[in-house]
Nucleic acid binder design. Sequence first.
DNA 1: TGTTTTTCTTGCCCTTTGTCAAGGTACCGG
DNA 2: CCGGTACCTTGACAAAGGGCAAGAAAAACA
Lengths: 215, 215
Amino acid sequence: MLECGRSNFNESSKLISLFLAGMFEVFFAHIRERISLNEEEEATIKTYLTPKKLRRKQYLLQEGDVCKYFSFVEKGLLRSYNVEDKGAEHMIQFAWEGWWMVDIFSFLTGEQSTYNIDAIEDTELLMIQPHSYEELMLKVPCMERYFRILFQNNIIAKERRLISSISHAAEEKYLNLVQTHPGIIKRIPQNLIASYIGITPETLSRVRRNLASKK
Amino acid sequence: MLECGRSNFNESSKLISLFLAGMFEVFFAHIRERISLNEEEEATIKTYLTPKKLRRKQYLLQEGDVCKYFSFVEKGLLRSYNVEDKGAEHMIQFAWEGWWMVDIFSFLTGEQSTYNIDAIEDTELLMIQPHSYEELMLKVPCMERYFRILFQNNIIAKERRLISSISHAAEEKYLNLVQTHPGIIKRIPQNLIASYIGITPETLSRVRRNLASKK
DNA sequence: TGTTTTTCTTGCCCTTTGTCAAGGTACCGG
DNA sequence: CCGGTACCTTGACAAAGGGCAAGAAAAACA
C-alpha cells in the first residue's frame, strides 16, 4: 500500500498518488501539531489506516454492534448519539475535520455499543481497528504519546462541557457552545445542537429568539 | 530517598521503611493493574513523587492559583469545584483512594485555575509536578502507556456522566450515580452530591423521599 | 423547478425544578 | 457534655423548561 516515489509512474498513477497524499493531509497535520515524526514512521502509520467514505445519513456504527473502528475525520461531519426507550435521541459528540470519532468503551472492550454513529455530511475517514491501534503504539512508540496528549485534551473539553451542563441554564449553555465551537452552528441542524446541550429544540428556538431581540 | 534493603537498618529505620512502603501501596497496586513494572522502574517512579497530608477542609488548590500538582489519593477524599459569581458551587470531581485529582488544563498550560480543590476527609496524597510528569514519561516510557490508559478510562467515565446529565431527569441522574459509585453516597454530604449531578439540595432531598416511599 | 421531507417557530398548558424561609437533626470541637 | 456549625427536610410559591400541535420555512431530491 502507498509505495510512492517509484520512477515508472505513469500519468494515472501520479493522480492516484496525489489523491492518496490528499487523503492523509488533515491527519498528519494534526499529528505534527502534537509530536514529530520522521518519514519512516509516517509510512508505517499509513499501513495501519483504512480509508473509508460515508454518504450523508449513512451509519458507521449501530446500537448493538461492536465499535470496530477508531475513526479520524479527514473531511465531513459525523455525530454519535444514543436513543432512549421512548425514542428520544441524545447527541454525545460531533466530529468534523481533525476530530476522532469512536465509542471508546466498545472499541476497547469489544462489548456491544449503545451508541449510533452516522454522517451528517458526506464524509471521508481514516479508520484503525483495535488490534492495529495497540500494535501501532508498540511499533511507533511516539503514537502512544500522541494518543496520551489527544486524550488529555479531550478530557479538558469534556470537563468543560460537563461544567456547562451542570452549572448553567439553557441560554448560557447555548452561548457557551457558540463561543467554544463557533463553526458548529452553521453546519449542524438546530435540533441536534439542542440535544447536544440537553434541551428541547423548542426551548433552543425560544432562547435564540430572545437573544436576537436583546441585541 | 527510599533506599531499602541495606543490612545495617536498626529498628527505627525498619519502621520508617514500613511506613514508606505503606505510603505507596494503593498507588502501585493501581499501576500494576494497568501495566507491569520492574523494581528499578518502581524505584525511579518513587523519586518523582512527593507525599503530602491534608486535613479535612484544607485547600490543595484555590481559584486564581496555578495547579502545580497532579495528585494521587492514597487515603481520604478530595473534591474539586468552581464557584459562580453569585456564590454557587459546582462539583467537578471527587477523588478517593485510587483516584487522581488535578485541574489538568491549568497543570499542563501553567495558566490560572478556575477550580478549587479541598479535602472532604483527612487525606494522604502522592503528588507530581508538571516538569516531573513530563520527565517521568521519558525516563520510564511505560508510564506514558499508564497515563494513556488512565485517560482512556477517564474519558469513558466522563462521557457517561455527561450522557446522564443531558439525558435524564433529577431522579434518574441520582439513581445513575448511586449505581456507578455506590461508595460515594456514604462518604459525601448530600448537598455536594446534588451539586455533582447539577440539581439543588432541596430537589435531591425530595427525590430521595419519593424513592423511599416507592419501595 | 416543483414536490416532498426535514427542520424551525410559535402558542398553550402542564410538569419539574428552583428559590426562599423556617425548623429539625447530626456532628464537631472545645 | 454542651454549644455551635453544618447539613437535611419541608412547605409555599415562582420560574424555567418540556410536550403537543399546527403552520412556516428551508433543504433535499427527483
